[in-house]
Amino acid sequence: MLEWFAPQRITWLHRANPAWKGLLMFLVMLVLFFSRDLAFIVVIACWYGGFLFVFSGFARRKLLLLCLPFALTFLSSSLTLALFGKGEHVLWQWGIVKISEESVRSGLIIGMKSLAIGLVSLVLLLTTRPVLLFYALMQQFRFPARFAYSFLAALRLVPIVIEEWQTRTHALKVRGIAFSKGVKGVYERLKLYSVPLFAQSIRRAQRMAVAMEAKQFRMNQPRTYYYETSYSKIDAYLTAYVCGSLLVALLMPEPFR
């Protein structure tokens, strides 16, 4: 499964400082999040879509597959807003459904926003190894080691959690548990799954913390790092690219809007 996410070739994007790349992509996401300018969002989506397909080092087929969920989000979120969104210039009305010029526009905006943010996130996720991201956060951004190592350690336990989830599903099936309907059923499901899952995870996490401290992991002491990360020329290129993309999108001439 993880091999599937290994890139075909390593591009310059993979060699950028992970923390810096993360910060840049987060900033682009923030700008997109608060933007209401459809043209701006479309241009950004094109920039980062292109970026993804040209520089991520992944095969086109895989990238299309990875973009599929975002396309689905585009459809579902824009549809709700188009049907129930507020607006004055009504195009079509039927019962509680009211489609207006404004609601179609806000539906399009939110759909494009989800798509653009999805593409920006994929650029970061597909070219960054989580371990290196946390090492870079600690070294370049002084992110506290206790949080970074805890997160990395807990991340390693995720496969076990998923396995336990499946075991639990099988166990409940064998015991012939029938869930009630409605809210009560949701509650039963939640409780039957989460209690053993949390009990085991908490025990495991506690044991791991004790083991780490026994190996002299200290929360607030200067430390050395197994993976050393630093800035390079590539980070300057990436910064220039991101600034360029934002500027072009902002300064789009009027006829394209």
């Binding site: 206790r146 949080f147 805890s150 997160f151 350690a153 807990a154 991340l155 336990l157 995720v158 959690v161 998923i162 989830w165 799954y193 989460s194 899952l197 949390f198 995870s201 908490i202 495991r204 996490a205 506690q206 791991m208 913390a209 004790v210 780490m212 401290e213 992991f217 929360m219």
Partner: peptide, 21 residues
């Protein structure tokens, strides 16, 4: 304590997995 940090983050991550399902 460090145990608290790790357990809190673990709880967050288990919720992340549950939220995925």
């Amino acid at each position: 304590k460090f145990t608290d940090v790790l357990v809190t983050i673990m709880v967050g991550i288990v919720f992340g997995v549950i939220m995925k399902f």
